[in-house]
Amino acid sequence: MRMSYTRQLLIERPDIPRVAIGILVAIMLFGLFSVGFDQGQLFSLVEGKEAFDSNWLHEFVHDMRHAAGFPCH
């Protein structure tokens, strides 16, 4: 008696998309700087020196910055 069978294999593609890695690196650096380190620098790009006094972004993420363990004033 002749037997036949079908076998299915699932093969995972090993490639990691480098464009996606680059995008994630950019998001990570921008996000961490915004939440953890900005002292007015980001908004000073459009607002000028006034941004260092108003600290709009810094104050907006102020409580999360403290809670996440970043140094703050």
Binding site: I27, G31, V35, V61, A68
Partner: peptide
């Protein structure tokens, strides 16, 4: 800004 800050913090660390 607590929740927005949490989302930005979350996305930046999830990127890493």
């Amino acid at each position: 800004g607590e929740i927005v800050g949490g989302i930005v913090y979350g996305i930046s660390l999830s990127s890493l």
